[in-house]
Design a binder for these strands. Structure first.
Length: 538
DNA sequence: CGAAGGTTGACTCG
DNA sequence: CGAGTCAACCTTCG
């Protein structure tokens, strides 16, 4: 590269210094390095019509987490003699303008498999190739390169975890040490006419600061991620014996998992570094758990979903998605959806989880299972895409591939098909937390309800409700559906839908679904139908 | 074609 | 608290 040459490091995910091949490449042999982050209005512009504070795409907690991550990245770049240059606007337009304005010879950014970035990156790469700019876009967000795994499998993504593991084998980089530090970075040059700012605050983006109890306790950034990682792997026994399904979803003061997911989502933590740390622990203990339940197994699940998502057109919708069962979800479900989203279904276990989601932007994996099952195939029969949208906005760790993959899973639309296994909104939580402490914390209106009734407060005698200062139907809602009858109905609908999918070998049209919906409605026993209507009216 | 296996269901029984 | 039962799905593999 010639003297006086400039490189541009475009940060999107991968908000870290450690194990960042794009940043490393950008810093080598360049006289000037411009580290850039673009504030994308598509993700960041306030949306006053959204059901909770935030943008159309992201709740305020995740926006705050991202900004904290950027502040930390800026400070880590400053220690290396550089800084983060923040720009605003449509990312492809902004980046192309910067490339021209700064006479950049080399553009570096982490490869991204999401459709949004695929389209965005195609535009930028297109410009770069006509302008003769070198582009370096390494795969470093995941353990494996999804494209390679799909290629190994004859062009189709593996559809089971076990077949994924077989194809994946050992990561290619495992034998060579990861680059964990950078000693210094070239300075950035003249920014010319490009408008550069510091990392904005939420107020500067046009948001009002939330109430204290609505702010996620998890703070963004690489420094926080590495601290949290160290704390998590300190206890070698805990790491070695980790079994995901045995975790307690009601533990909230000290969560049963690492809560490293939001840091992996934004790339504040390298999944590859996390993986090598886990390998080190495993080497030093007598025995340890294995995938799928081990901690390393969780990282492999992440790669599994990235791979399937990358190789499946229309992965994030039912229609036109080849691996998704076509199911006649309710289409008149706005009330039920709103009750679920706002934590007023009348089932305290479900509602407490939804309040934790809104306030913290995070809840335990099994808690996510409970509410996702309840919304879709378990009780309300609402379309998984609607639940997916709520999670996508509110989770601080919401990740396109993993979120969609898990909604496909939980709704029995793909990957998992045992629709008879339904989580009980009453007994599932009770077996972990018989006293209901989790419910009392997130639903203070129920804090004085005796533990005999806290999972089913509508069964409490009026005198008990009075003493607990919580009248059901006034202070806390009656259940929106009866779980026993609703879940039976759901099973019946799932069986019919599965039969139709089998008969038509997956080629179910919109009309087929309309017909099935009509048939299901007609077949519904009159007394069940009446009960449901009374429920909706009352 | 049949058998086996699938990250994490609920319930009852001993 | 572990095993068996319930009712039974799918995909994968031989």
């Amino acid at each position: 590269m010639s003297a006086g040459s400039s490189s541009l490091m475009w940060f999107r995910k991968g908000l870290r210094i450690h194990d960042n091949p794009a940043l490393e490449h950008a810093s080598k042999g360049s006289n000037f390095l411009y580290p850039v982050f673009v504030i994308d209005p598509h993700y960041m512009k306030p949306d006053p019509t959204a059901p909770s504070p935030g943008s159309f795409k992201a709740g305020l907690n995740r926006i705050r987490f991202l900004l904290q991550s950027l502040v930390d990245l800026d400070s880590n770049l400053k220690k290396l003699g550089s800084r983060l240059l923040v720009l605003k606007g449509d990312p492809s337009e902004v980046i192309i303008r910067c490339l021209k304005e700064w006479d950049v010879k080399r553009l570096c950014f982490e490869y991204d498999t999401e459709p949004y970035y695929q389209a965005l990156d195609a535009k930028v790469k297109g410009f770069a190739s006509t302008a003769g700019i070198e582009v370096f876009s390494p795969v470093s967000h995941t353990l494996f390169n999804p494209a390679e795994i799909i290629q190994k499998n004859g062009g189709r993504p593996p559809l089971s975890y076990q077949s994924f593991l077989k194809l994946a084998g050992e990561p290619s980089w495992i034998s060579s040490p990861l680059s964990m530090t950078i000693s210094s970075l070239p300075p950035f040059g003249n920014v010319m006419n490009c408008e550069i700012s510091e990392v904005p605050t939420v107020e500067e983006l046009g948001y009002e600061e939330a109430q204290q109890d609505e702010i996620s306790p998890f703070r963004g950034g690489e420094s926080e991620a590495l601290k949290r990682l160290r704390q998590s792997i300190e206890n070698k026994e805990w790491v070695a014996n980790f079994e995901k399904p045995k975790g307690d979803p009601s533990a909230f003061l000290k969560p049963a998992t690492t809560v490293l997911s939001p840091y992996l989502k934004f790339g504040c933590l390298s999944s590859r570094y996390f993986y090598t740390c886990l390998q080190d622990v495993h080497k030093n203990v007598k025995r340890h758990t294995l995938p799928p339940v081990s901690l390393a197994g969780q990282l492999l699940w992440r790669d599994f979903f990235y791979t399937v998502a990358f190789g499946t057109p229309k992965f994030d919708q039912m229609r036109g998605n080849k691996i998704c069962k076509q199911i006649p979800w309710n289409d008149d479900d706005d009330e039920l959806l709103a009750a679920w989203r706002e934590g007023r279904t009348g089932y305290p276990w479900i509602d407490a989880i939804m309040i934790q989601l809104r306030k913290w932007g995070w809840m335990h994996h099994l808690a996510r299972h409970c509410v996702a099952c309840f919304l879709t195939r378990g009780d309300l029969f609402v379309h998984w895409e609607k639940g997916r949208d709520v999670f996508e906005r509110l989770l601080i760790d919401s990740d396109w591939a993993i979120n969609n993959g898990n909604w496909l899973w939980l709704s029995c639309s793909s990957f998992f098909y045992q629709y008879n296994r339904i989580y009980s909104p009453i007994s599932f939580g009770k077996k972990y937390d018989p006293n209901g402490d989790y419910i009392r914390y997130f639903l203070p209106v129920l804090k004085d309800m005796p533990k005999e009734y806290i999972y089913e407060p509508w069964t409490a005698p009026l005198s008990i409700q009075n003493t607990a200062k919580c009248i059901i139907g006034r202070d806390y809602p009656k259940p929106v559906v009866y779980h026993d009858s609703a879940s039976k109905e759901c099973k019946r609908k799932m069986a019919e839908a599965y039969a139709l999918n089998k008969k038509l070998t997956g080629l179910v049209s919109e009309d087929d679904l309309i017909n099935l919906r009509r048939k299901l409605e007609e077949d519904q026993k009159p007394e069940v139908k009446n009960k449901r209507q009374r429920k909706l009216m009352g």
